[in-house]
């Protein structure tokens, strides 16, 4: 089970399953939306609040 620090509030964020690229998760402390931006190494970032998908 992977644990990362929330980039917003530094609380521990625990992954219940294997992290997947671009998956979204919530920090249990600040409830911020986080995004997996790299799997190897594992890096999470604050998810963009609104982003255009350019037709996808």
């Amino acid at each position: 089970m992977s644990v990362q620090a929330c980039p917003e509030c530094a609380a521990d964020v625990t992954f219940a399953a294997e992290p997947e690229m671009n998956s979204i998760l919530e920090c249990g402390e600040c409830m911020g939306e986080l995004e997996v931006v790299s799997v190897e190494p594992l890096i999470i970032a604050v998810a963009p609040e609104v982003e255009e998908d350019w037709g996808e």
Partner: peptide
């Protein structure tokens, strides 16, 4: 600030730290 709250109440059964971004 967050670290101070976390340290103070990590083991407290009846104090919850709530400073959230959404909801």
């Amino acid at each position: 600030i967050r670290a101070a709250y976390r340290k103070a109440y990590a083991d407290e059964p009846f104090v919850r730290v709530v400073a959230q971004k959404r909801g």
